[in-house]
Design a protein around this nucleic acid. Structure first.
Lengths: 335, 335
DNA sequence: GTGAAAGCGCTAACAC
DNA sequence: GTGTTAGCGCTTTCAC
C-alpha cells in the first residue's frame, strides 16, 4: 500500500505539502505541485478516505434507509437521492429496514457508528414508534415519504390528500357518481390521507357513503379481492378509486373476470404511477408521484443541515402529484 | 462525542480492556466486562468504525456498482446482494455508473479510496473496455450479469443462451413454426446469447430464417416498432420471441393495434420476468431470471475471496433460468 | 487479565 | 510556501 508518506519522500516534499496538493489547499509552488502529481500518478496512489475522515471528523458519506431495496416504488426516489448526492461528492450507504422497526433501529445505529454525515430515512410505517430514539441522534436526519407523528425532524412527503382529491374530483367531473374506494390499511398514514382526499371530494358532491369504503392492503391480491367484493355488493359502480396502482391492477383483473370492460363499463383510477401502469391494457389513469424530485429535495435539505447554514426550525416539504390521464377512465365529452 | 477513552476512564479500566469487551476478545474478567458494558450503555457510546477500520485495515464495507439504481431489472439483484451482505455484517456502498464507462471507472476509483473490502460490479455494457484498469485492482471484485471479454475476474451470470433455447423450444413443441425474434442491440452480449439460443432451437427444427430476425433495443417502444415491422413483413406469424419482457410489452400493444388476439392469433414469449409480467392481460409467459440468487451467489464468492480461503483460479457461475408458463403462449393439447 | 504505548494514514495548526 | 508534529479513535503487541 502506498501512503502519503511515500509520495512525500519520492517527491522530495513534506506530507503537509502533499496533503495540500491533494486537497487543492493553499498555494503550493507549481513546481512542487507538478512533481507531487507526477509521483502520485506513477505510484498509482489513492488517498485513503478513511484516514482523512478520522482526521477531519467528516466522512462525506450519508446513510439511506429504505424499507425494501427491491421495491419498484422507491427506485426513482433512490435515483433522485443518489444522483443529487453524487453531484455533491457524497457517497451513499444503502440500508434496508425490511419494514421492521427493530431492524430500522439497528440499521440507524450501525450507520451512526460509521460516522456518516447525515441520514435520509424512509421510515417503516407503524403507529407506535420509539420517538425518543430518533430525537437523540446528533447528525442531521431527513424523513422521506412517510411521516412520523410527533417527530421533530425535517421531512419531505408527497401530497396524498391533494392527489386523491384531484383524482376523485376528476372522476366526478367526468360524470361518475358511484365511486367506491379500494383502500390500503388503516394504520398507514399515507393511505389515510388518500382516503380523506377521496372522502372530501365525495362529500362535497354529496356522493359519500360508508358502504363505498373497502379496506385491504397495498397489494395486487388485495385489490383483486376488494374489487370482487365491491362488484358483489354494489349494483352499478361507475368508477373505482384504487388507492395504489397495484390495487388498481388487481381491480382490473377482477373486473375482467366479471366480463366487464374498462373504461366502458367501469372506470379505474390508480394512484402512484408505477413504471408499468402506462403499458397496461388499458393504460392506467393515475396520480404520478414525483419521486425523483422528492429525493432531490430531501438531499438539498440534508446538505443544508449538514453545512449548518439553516435555521433551527424544522422544514416540511409537501410535494404535489400530477394527474396522468390515460385510458382506464372514461372521459365525458361535455367535460 | 464519547470515545473509548471516556469509557475506560469511567469504568476504571484501560482502553485496551474496553476494546476487548467491545470485540468480545480474550477473556475479560466478568466484573470488568459488566462494568464496561454498563458504562457504555449509560453514556450511549457507539464505537467508531472509521477509527477501527483505520486500525484494522478492514472496513466491512463493500461497494456495489449498478448501471442504473432505478432500473427494476436490478432491484431483486440488489436485494439478494444486500440481504446476503447484511447477514455477514457487511455494509454496502451503492454507486451508479449510469451506463457510462468513464463514470464507472471514476466510481471504482472513489470506492478504492474508501478502503472497501471488495466490489460487486454490474458492468456497463460495451464492446471496448479498458481491461488493464480492472486487472490492477488489488481488492476482490466480482462481476455480475454481464461478462467482459478477457477479464480474469470471478463472475456470476445468467444463462441467456439456455433460457432462450428453452423458451423457443417450448414454442416449437407447442406447434408454433413461424417464430420471429424481437431482438436487442447486437453489441449486447446477453442479447447475442439469447439470439443464439433462439437460433439454435430454430435451426434444430429447420425453422430458422434470416428474415425472422428483428433488431432494436431493450425498450417497450422498440418492441412495439419491431412487432409492427414483423406483422408488416411476415404473413402468418405463429409466435414471437421477445428477447426482453419490455419488448414483449411493446409487441403486445402492437398486436393489439392490429386487432389480433394473444395467444389465439399469436403467441408471445417474453424474457426476463419483470415484476408486472404476471399481471398483464394476458399474463406473460416468460423466462424468469433468478436475480436474487445471482446476487446471493455473487456475495458468497466475494466473501470467499475476501477471506482468502479460495483457490487462485477464477470461478464462473452460470445461473439457469426458469420457464414461467402463463397465458400469452397458446399451448397445444397434444403436447 | 490488564495497562501502556505505538501506530493505522491523514489533516491542520504552527513555526519558520 | 513548506516542514514538523500532535492528534483523530481505535486495535494490538508486549510487558507485567
Amino acid at each position: 500500500m502506498v501512503t502519503i508518506k511515500d509520495i512525500a519522500k519520492k517527491s522530495g516534499v513534506s506530507v503537509g505539502t502533499v496533503s495540500n496538493v491533494i486537497n487543492n489547499l493553499k498555494s503550493v509552488k507549481t513546481k512542487n505541485r507538478e512533481k507531487v502529481l507526477e509521483v502520485i500518478d506513477s505510484l498509482d496512489y489513492k488517498p485513503n478516505k478513511i484516514a482523512a475522515s478520522l482526521s477531519k471528523k467528516k466522512t462525506m458519506n450519508v446513510g439511506l434507509i429504505v424499507p425494501d431495496v427491491s421495491s419498484p416504488f422507491y427506485s426513482d426516489l433512490i435515483k433522485g437521492i443518489s444522483e443529487t448526492l453524487e453531484i455533491n461528492d457524497y457517497n451513499i450507504f444503502l440500508c434496508a429496514s425490511n419494514n421492521n422497526l427493530q431492524k430500522e433501529e439497528k440499521v440507524i445505529n450501525d450507520l451512526l457508528s460509521m460516522w456518516i454525515d447525515g441520514i435520509i430515512l424512509i421510515p417503516v410505517y407503524s403507529k407506535k414508534r420509539n420517538l425518543q430514539f430518533l430525537e437523540t441522534i446528533e447528525i442531521p436526519i431527513i424523513l422521506v415519504n412517510r411521516e412520523i407523528e410527533g417527530i421533530k425532524k425535517d421531512i419531505v412527503i408527497f401530497d396524498n390528500f391533494g392527489g386523491a382529491y384531484e383524482a376523485t374530483d376528476f372522476l366526478i367531473k367526468n360524470n361518475h357518481k358511484i365511486i367506491p374506494i379500494l383502500g390500503g390499511p388503516e394504520l398507514s398514514k399515507s393511505f389515510e390521507e388518500r382516503f380523506q382526499g377521496w372522502k372530501e371530494a365525495m362529500e362535497e358532491n354529496s356522493l359519500y357513503e360508508n358502504s363505498l369504503v373497502f379496506r385491504g392492503d397495498f397489494s395486487v391480491e388485495s385489490g383483486h379481492k376488494m374489487m370482487l367484493e365491491a362488484l358483489n355488493r354494489i349494483r352499478s359502480i361507475d368508477a373505482v378509486f384504487a388507492s395504489s396502482d397495484l390495487i388498481a391492477l388487481g381491480a382490473l383483473s377482477a373486473i375482467d373476470e366479471y366480463k366487464l370492460k374498462v373504461p366502458d363499463d367501469i372506470s379505474v383510477m390508480g394512484f402512484g404511477d408505477i413504471y408499468l401502469s402506462k403499458f397496461l391494457k388499458p393504460s392506467l389513469t393515475t396520480i404520478r408521484r414525483p419521486f425523483y424530485n422528492i429525493g432531490k429535495t430531501a438531499v438539498s435539505l440534508l446538505l443544508d443541515r449538514i453545512s449548518g447554514n439553516m435555521q433551527k426550525k424544522i422544514t416540511k416539504f409537501i410535494i404535489k402529484g400530477k394527474l396522468e390521464i390515460r385510458d382506464s377512465v372514461k372521459v365525458s365529452i361535455d367535460n
